[in-house]
C-alpha cells in the first residue's frame, strides 16, 4: 500500500528521454505500470503534446522535484506540482551532488518534514542508510525509496547487503528501489529481496526497443514479486543432490 493506494503492478515508470510521445505511450501500456513520474519545467515546444498524453494515460501521476538542490527549491516545486497535477503525491528529490545525483540526506529530511506537515504524500528518494530512513519516517513519510545505484547509471543493486538490511529493518514500510536499474533481472532481484516496487526510467527509454523493454520489465517485476511471495529456498555453500539416493541402481 502506497499512501492507501494498492497497486497491482509494482513498476513505476519514468516518462523522460523517450524517442517520441507515441513510443512513451506504448511503453507505458506495455509495461502495465499504474504509476508514472512527471516533472515541472519551463514549457518547451512539446509541452502541449505531453499534456495530451497525460490525459490519455490512465496512470496515477507521481510528480518529482528533480534537479532541486535545496529545501526551498524542493518545497516550492512540490507545492507547484500539487496544484498543477492535482495530486498530493510527490517524489521528493533533493540532490546533494550533480555528478553522483546522490541525495542530500539532511536537506531531504528537512524538506520531507515541511511537506508532510502540509499534507503531502512524500516518496523520498534516499540512500539505503537506516538512520536517514528512520528520520524520514519520523518526518511523516510512509514510503521510502532507496537508490539501487546512481540515477541513470544502470548498475543495478550496487549495495545488495545494505538493501537487504533496509528491507529487514523497515519490515512494514513500503520500500521502492528508485534509480540505477539497468536490466530486467536487476528489477526482479529487487522484488525477490522483498521490495514493494521498482521505479525506473532510463533503462526503458534508452533501450533499442523501449516498448519491448517496458514489457520485459513489467514481467520481470511480476516474476520477482511472485518469487518473493512464494518464498526463495535458502542458499547453501555445498551441493545437495536433488534426485533421491534411495533406489539408486548398482551398476558399478
Amino acid at each position: 500500500m502506497f499512501y492507501g493506494v494498492d497497486l497491482t503492478s509494482r513498476l513505476m515508470l519514468g516518462t523522460a528521454q523517450y524517442p517520441s510521445p507515441q513510443v512513451l505511450l506504448e511503453a507505458i501500456e506495455a509495461s502495465g505500470a499504474q504509476v508514472i513520474t512527471v516533472s515541472l519545467r519551463r514549457e518547451g515546444a512539446a509541452g502541449g503534446a505531453f499534456r495530451a498524453l497525460l490525459a490519455k494515460s490512465r496512470c496515477r501521476l507521481l510528480p518529482n522535484t528533480a534537479g532541486c538542490h535545496t529545501v526551498r527549491e524542493a518545497v516550492t516545486t512540490a507545492r507547484m506540482a500539487r496544484e498543477v497535477f492535482g495530486t498530493s503525491w510527490i517524489k521528493l528529490e533533493v540532490i546533494g551532488h550533480a555528478d553522483t545525483q546522490q541525495p542530500d540526506p539532511f536537506a531531504l529530511v528537512e524538506a520531507a518534514r515541511v511537506l508532510c506537515a502540509e499534507g503531502f504524500d512524500v516518496f523520498p528518494y534516499t540512500t539505503e542508510d537506516l538512520i536517514v530512513g528512520e528520520k524520514l519516517l519520523e518526518a511523516g513519510c510512509k514510503v521510502l525509496m532507496p537508490w539501487g545505484a546512481p540515477i541513470g547509471s544502470g548498475q543495478g543493486l550496487r549495495n545488495l547487503a545494505g538493501l537487504r538490511s533496509m528491507r529487514a529493518h523497515f519490515r512494514d514500510v513500503p520500500l521502492v528501489v528508485d534509480a540505477g536499474i539497468g536490466a530486467p533481472s536487476q528489477a526482479a532481484q529487487a522484488m525477490e529481496l522483498g521490495f514493494d516496487a521498482v521505479l525506473l526510467n532510463t533503462a526503458v527509454a534508452k533501450a533499442v526497443d523501449p516498448v519491448g523493454m517496458a514489457r520485459a520489465f513489467g514481467r520481470a517485476i511480476q516474476a520477482g514479486q511472485e518469487g518473493f511471495v512464494a518464498g526463495l529456498m535458502p542458499e547453501r555453500d555445498m551441493a545437495s543432490a536433488s534426485t533421491p539416493v534411495f533406489g539408486l541402481a548398482e551398476l558399478a
Binding site: A16, T37, S39, R42, E43, A66
Partner: peptide, 10 residues
C-alpha cells in the same frame, strides 16, 4: 517569475 508546465520526468 517562474511559470512551469507538466513535462516528462523520471
Amino acid at each position: 517569475v517562474e511559470v512551469l508546465s507538466p513535462m516528462q520526468g523520471g
